[in-house]
Lab assay of single mutants.
Amino acid sequence: QDAKLCERHREKLHYYCEDDGKLLCVMCRESREHRPHTAVLMEK
């Protein structure tokens, strides 16, 4: 099964943002929008 990719950055989605309920890639996780949020690394 292929991992889902971030629509914005075309990177694999490794994080779940608990504040927004969205899946994030590393680039999104470090963005100004999500940096202050609680995001957890998803298990494989």
Rank of each mutant, 00 (worst) to 15 (best):
L24I: 06
E30L: 02
E43P: 12
K12W: 05
A39D: 11
E11Y: 00
L23A: 10
E18V: 07
H37N: 06
V26E: 14
C17R: 04
K22I: 02
G21P: 05
Q1P: 07
C6W: 00
P36N: 00
C28D: 03
K4F: 11
E43T: 06
H9M: 00
C6K: 00
E18M: 07
D19S: 08
E18K: 13
V26R: 14
T38D: 07
E33H: 01
K4C: 08
S31I: 06
D20E: 05
H37S: 05
E7P: 13
D2Y: 06
H37W: 00
H9I: 00
L23W: 12
Y16T: 03
E18Q: 09
D20Y: 02
R8V: 14
Q1D: 04
R10F: 10
E30I: 07
E18G: 03
S31T: 09
S31H: 14
E7K: 06
L13N: 14
C25H: 01
C28P: 02
K44R: 12
A39K: 10
K22W: 02
C25W: 00
K44P: 08
R10A: 13
K4D: 09
K4L: 11
L23T: 09
D20S: 09
R10W: 03
H14V: 14
A3H: 15
P36Y: 02
E18R: 09
E30S: 09
R35E: 12
R35A: 13
S31W: 02
E30P: 00
D20W: 01
P36G: 15
R32N: 13
R8E: 14
T38R: 14
H37E: 09
H9Q: 03
H34G: 03
G21R: 10
L41I: 15
Q1N: 06
E30W: 06
C6V: 00
G21A: 11
M42L: 13
C6P: 03
C25M: 00
C25D: 03
L5G: 04
S31R: 05
D19P: 03
K22N: 07
R29L: 10
A39Y: 04
K44T: 11
Y16Q: 08
G21N: 06
M27C: 14
L23M: 13
D20K: 10
P36W: 04
V26C: 12
Y16C: 03
E11M: 07
E30Y: 13
D20N: 15
L13G: 14
L24Q: 09
H37D: 05
S31A: 10
H14S: 15
S31E: 15
R10V: 04
D20V: 03
T38V: 07
C28I: 00
D19E: 11
L5Q: 04
M42I: 12
R29M: 10
C17M: 01
G21W: 01
R8S: 12
Y16L: 07
C17K: 12
E33W: 01
E33N: 09
R35K: 12
A3V: 00
E43M: 07
E7Q: 08
H37K: 09
H34Q: 08
K4H: 15
K12V: 03
L23C: 03
C6T: 00
E30V: 01
K22T: 12
R35Q: 08
E11H: 05
E43K: 09
L13K: 13
M42V: 11
G21F: 03
R10S: 13
A39C: 13
R35W: 06
M42D: 11
Q1W: 07
C25T: 02
K4R: 13
E33G: 03
C28L: 00
H34E: 07
E33L: 04
M27E: 12
K44A: 15
E18S: 06
E43I: 01
P36A: 14
H34K: 06
L13P: 15
E33T: 07
D2M: 13
H37A: 04
E33Q: 08
T38Q: 13
K12E: 10
P36D: 08
M27W: 10
C6Q: 00
C28R: 00
M27L: 11
E33Y: 04
K22D: 03
P36H: 11
H14Q: 15
C25A: 01
Y16A: 08
V26Y: 10
R8Q: 13
C25I: 00
R32I: 10
C28Q: 03
K4E: 12
R32E: 14
P36E: 15
Y16D: 05
H9G: 02
Q1L: 11
E18H: 10
E30M: 05
H34D: 03
E30D: 11
K12I: 08
R29C: 09
E7A: 10
E18F: 01
L23H: 07
L41A: 09
G21S: 08
M42Y: 07
A39M: 10
C17S: 05
K22Y: 01
H37G: 04
E11W: 02
T38N: 11
K44S: 13
R29Y: 03
R29A: 06
H9D: 02
V26S: 14
D2K: 13
Q1I: 03
Q1A: 13
E11N: 05
E7I: 08
E7W: 03
L41C: 07
K22E: 15
D19R: 06
P36K: 12
T38G: 08
P36R: 12
D2E: 14
H37Q: 05
T38A: 11
H37L: 01
R8F: 15
L23N: 05
L5R: 08
Y16N: 08
C17P: 05
L41W: 07
T38F: 05
L24C: 06
Y16F: 15
K12R: 12
C25R: 00
D20T: 10
R35H: 10
C28N: 02
Y16S: 07
E11P: 02
D2H: 10
R29Q: 05
L24G: 08
E33A: 08
K44G: 14
G21Q: 11
L24Y: 03
A39I: 11
Y15P: 06
C28V: 00
C25F: 00
V26L: 09
K22V: 07
V26K: 14
C25Y: 00
A39H: 11
E33V: 04
P36S: 13
K22Q: 12
E43S: 09
Q1Y: 03
M27V: 13
M27F: 12
D2I: 09
Y16P: 08
V26W: 13
P36T: 13
E33P: 03
K22M: 11
H14R: 11
C17G: 06
M42K: 13
R32G: 12
M27H: 15
R8W: 10
G21E: 10
R29V: 10
K44Q: 14
S31D: 10
E7C: 12
R8P: 10
E30A: 06
A39P: 06
P36M: 10
M27D: 08
C17T: 05
D2T: 14
R29I: 02
R32K: 12
L5F: 02
K4P: 03
H34W: 01
K44C: 08
C17E: 05
D19M: 09
L23Q: 10
C28E: 02
V26D: 13
C17W: 02
H9Y: 00
L13F: 14
H34M: 05
H14A: 14
E43V: 04
E30T: 07
H37I: 01
A39N: 12
V26A: 12
R10K: 12
E7L: 06
C28M: 00
R10P: 10
L23I: 04
C25L: 00
D19I: 08
L41F: 04
L41T: 08
C17D: 04
V26P: 12
L5A: 04
A39W: 07
L5H: 01
P36Q: 14
M42A: 11
C6E: 02
R29T: 11
D19V: 09
R29S: 07
M42S: 08
K4N: 15
D2P: 12
H34V: 02
K22R: 08
R29D: 03
A3T: 15
H34S: 04
A3C: 14
A3M: 15
D20H: 02
H34I: 01
H9S: 02
R32F: 08
M42E: 10
P36C: 13
L24P: 12
K12G: 09
D20F: 12
H14C: 10
K4T: 07
M27Q: 14
R10C: 05
M27G: 10
Y16H: 05
L41R: 11
T38L: 06
K12S: 10
V26M: 06
E43C: 03
M42T: 05
E43Q: 09
K44D: 14
R10L: 09
C17V: 02
D19N: 06
K4Q: 14
C28W: 00
Y16K: 11
M42P: 06
L5W: 03
R35N: 04
C6D: 00
E11K: 09
K12A: 10
L41P: 12
